[in-house]
């Protein structure tokens, strides 16, 4: 039996990162995995993709075998201090300590990120899950999260956190465990941002080479003769959009493509629809 696999899903805001995370978790659940879906950050929409109430720090079963949770930094920190470091006094001073560290995290680089990525690391190491899927911060911030263990090693000459940073860096860069998924759409700005992220990852080598998922790809549909009226307008727009998207598809690595979903109303329907295309990512 292989060990736990970790999928970190990032992408430019608005490309469908949370939908792809949920779809990936649903696909893994369907093949019988014990799955944990984790949301990082305040603005996540993972819960809506499972059609469930807002997520909490405590994992909650949202489908049989599929748990979902939200990593909030104060909770992650308290757990870290009491369970991982077994520090005395955490119970008594817990709230104050969490707030102090949270404030510290605004000023000290990598502290905020190491606490969050640390929670992911502990869940991967816990042995409770076959698959951990993380709805990670967008590409603009993902670098500082992935690089956090390195940054801590450079910044913190002593302290217990430094030793653990080494182990975290090892897990993140292990191709048997970690896979980064970059979600994008075939448009100019997301394509440029994906290229920048790929170049950065190639330089820093903090995770194995990522898998690029191109979301909202329009189908190529041929029409024998152009109809008149409203139908003709739709055919014209469709064909022009397909031609435009091809420019960006040609520039993007074509690892996995997901279809544009027409007339789909709810986030839960979006995730369910996309989960069929997730085989190639798993």
């Amino acid at each position: 039996m292989a060990g736990t696999r970790l999928f970190l899903v990032s992408g430019k805001g608005g490309t469908g990162k949370s939908a792809v995370s949920a779809a990936l978790a649903l696909r893994a659940q369907r093949q019988g995995d014990r799955v944990l879906a984790m949301e990082i950050g305040e603005e996540g929409s993972l819960a809506s993709h499972f059609a469930t109430t807002p997520l909490a720090f405590e994992p909650r079963e949202v489908r049989p075998g599929l748990h979902a949770m939200k990593v909030s930094r104060p909770d992650a920190l308290l757990e870290y201090l009491s369970l991982q470091l077994r520090l005395p006094g955490v119970g008594r001073f817990g709230g104050r300590i969490a707030r102090a560290f949270d404030a510290l995290a605004t000023a000290a680089p990598a502290v905020r990120e190491i606490i969050t990525i640390g929670k992911v690391y502990w869940e991967v190491r816990s042995g409770r899950w076959d698959t951990v899927v993380v709805d990670a911060p967008p590409t603009g911030q993902i670098g500082s999260y992935l690089r956090a263990p390195q940054s801590i090693k450079e910044l913190v000459p002593t302290g217990r956190i430094r030793g653990q940073a080494e182990s975290m860096a090892g897990t993140l860069s292990d191709p048997e465990i970690t896979r980064l998924v970059l979600v994008t759409v075939p448009e100019e700005v997301p394509t440029a941002e994906t290229e920048e992220t790929l170049a950065w990852l190639d330089r820093e080598k903090v995770v194995p080479p990522p898998r690029v998922v191109v979301n909202r790809v329009l189908p190529v549909l041929e029409v024998a003769t152009r109809p008149t009226g409203v139908a003709g307008e739709m055919v014209d727009l469709h064909q022009s959009l397909v031609a435009e998207q091809q420019i960006w598809l040609d520039r993007l690595p074509g690892d996995v493509q997901l279809p544009y979903l027409f007339g789909v109303y709810t986030p839960a329907e979006v995730a369910a629809n996309l989960s069929d295309g997730m085989e190639a990512v798993l």
Binding site: G89, V111, V156, T158
Partner: peptide
């Protein structure tokens, strides 16, 4: 605690 975790420096 901060000292232990992060180092005093």
């Amino acid at each position: 605690i901060a000292d232990t975790v992060l180092g005093s420096d």
